[in-house]
Computed example of a mutant assay.
Amino acid sequence: MRVAIAGAGAVGRSIAQELVAGEHQVMLIERDSAQFEPHTVDQAEWVLADACELASLEEAGLQLCDVVIAATGDDKVNLVVSLLAKTEFAVKRVVARVNNPANEWLFTAAWGVDVAVSTPRVLAAMVEEAVSVGGLVQLLTLRQGQANLVEMTLPDDTPWAGRPVRDVKLPRDAALVTILRGGRVIVPQADDSLEAGDELLFVASAAVEPQIRAAFAQI
């Protein structure tokens, strides 16, 4: 997979290092010469250019990329990069970093964004997930808000301990996709039993999240 990352700051370089380790082709686009440091991710292709300029993106070969990640520290730049990637270069997947949560509403398909990642929201969700037992925690928004990745940890006194997954009556637009148990990642099957302390990961529309809570409040 060929991935272009706009912004070679700490965030962009970290993403690039992870993708390079996964044997993907990575191109970092940076307009600030002070942050143009190819030695920090020497397996990536580096381009000194303004990612908001159409000609620069065309010259860099953005049309050959499968994914574009707008990872700068400026939300306006990330929106422009996303829009150009989607409308001018028909990039299949555009991921954008949201720096200011107040701007999150802008990061939609109208601006070419397929997935918006709000760092403050993700960090808050991680903190909430670490201390929340029995409640439903939103970890990630998918498909411009059409669905969410949400997590629930079963408390020690859960009435669901020992009960099979098939007994859980989830609403139509929700799916239990993973059970995290100790160091294991379990793809749930109908006959698998639930245990206290299980971390349950669901993909669900926001509208049915209350019904997921209700499903685990009773048997």
Rank of each mutant, 00 (worst) to 15 (best):
I15A: 08
N100T: 03
R93H: 04
A85V: 00
W46G: 04
A102S: 11
D167S: 07
D173M: 05
E59R: 04
M1E: 15
W160K: 05
W105D: 02
G135N: 14
A4D: 03
E23R: 15
V208T: 11
F89L: 02
G7K: 13
D75G: 08
A10W: 14
W160Q: 06
I186P: 06
S132L: 10
L48N: 05
P101W: 06
A10N: 15
T119N: 12
W105H: 08
T108Q: 00
G7E: 01
Q189G: 12
A116G: 01
L54M: 09
D157Q: 09
E129I: 00
V208C: 15
K76I: 13
A214C: 06
L170E: 14
P159W: 00
A49L: 06
V168C: 09
E58A: 04
L194Y: 03
P120N: 12
T178Q: 14
G134R: 12
V185H: 14
S82R: 09
Q146W: 01
V67E: 08
N148D: 12
V165S: 10
L170H: 14
V98D: 07
R97V: 02
H24V: 03
Q146N: 04
A110V: 01
E45T: 11
I15E: 04
T153D: 05
D157L: 02
R172T: 02
V11G: 08
F89R: 05
G182P: 12
A125T: 10
I29P: 02
G162K: 09
Q144A: 05
V208R: 15
D74G: 12
V94A: 03
S205C: 05
V137L: 04
A96E: 09
A55L: 04
C52F: 05
R166P: 05
A10Y: 10
A51R: 13
S14R: 08
S33L: 04
A130S: 15
C52G: 11
R143I: 01
D167V: 01
V187K: 12
A70Q: 11
A214Q: 15
V47I: 13
E37A: 10
V115E: 09
D32A: 08
G12I: 04
E128N: 15
L83V: 00
N99V: 01
T158K: 04
N78R: 09
V185G: 07
L123N: 10
